[in-house]
Amino acid sequence: METVSIIFSFIYQYADNIGFLLLAAVGLIIIFGMMGVINMAHGELMMIGAYITAFAYHAGVPAPIAIIFAGIGSGLAGIVLERLVIRFFYRQLLSSLVVTWGISLVLTEGFLLIFGPSILNVPTPFGSFGVGELTFGIYRLVLFGVALLLIGLIWALFSYTRFGARARATMENPEMAEAFGINTSRMYALTFGLGSALGGIAGGMFALTATISPFFGVNYTLFAFITVVVGGGANVITGVTTSAAALAGAQTIVNNAWSVYVGYVSMMLAAFLILLILPRGISEYLERRKIRVAKKNG
């Protein structure tokens, strides 16, 4: 094999792995990273998105629009979930863990009962291209691009809009936010719905590459949590992107040196080591360093 195609293959796999982690984590950035809710049913909200995408696609809706439907559907499902259940368990870590795990099981078994063990898959679009002797799927790069785009949009929404400022105020100090005219109860429902909608879009994107079954979600919940936790809460966006870059880096290197299985193990090991050294995540370290540098310079 030529060197060029080997190098490209390596970069392609790295982008693919980063894209996977970021897209899996994209809704959880808001729900866990910002709101602090341990939502074990996050993967199931993605699963709902995948089902909506598949049904819409097979009903003749073009895939991109089907994925937008998935976002809307999962978003609404998220709002219902928040109003009926989640809102009673804010700031109760253990209870919310158990309750949302229960919801995840109910959704999985419910979909199994209603739709059976699997439904018709959606074909992966765009085909492939070749570099040297190797061929690469184009859609994987689309996943990577969309992941970056969605994270950029979340960042812009929370940094520069009125809604974003009000949401951040609510996360930081709900009582004072309420005293400043923000209906925090509605704000929680909205942000949870937004996180769920992003999960639904991610689920819809993945639906074009994976087998769609009631157990679709379990593939993502774990990786989503690892990515967000390793990123840390000091600055969720930089945290998640650096964490995905680090974890995917470890995975890609080991993948190529040994095997896919060892690649996954190495990612877990990397997460474990990072959290051992930086218990509050990468972004906490980066923020502290930024302050140190700022102090040194003046």
């Binding site: 009125r162 400022a165 009000r166 951040r168 105020a169 930081e172 100090n173 009582e175 004072m176 936010a177 309420e178 005293a179 400043f180 005219g181 923000i182 209906n183 925090t184």
Partner: peptide
């Protein structure tokens, strides 16, 4: 929040500043 909309403002003990937000963002709220 509804009382705030009616025109009542509250400055609590300990000030209740949003520490992680900028001064301007606090004012905008």
């Amino acid at each position: 929040s509804r009382r705030a909309h009616r025109g009542i403002a509250y400055v609590p003990q300990g000030r209740g500043i949003f520490n992680r937000m900028s001064v301007t963002e606090n004012l905008v709220l």
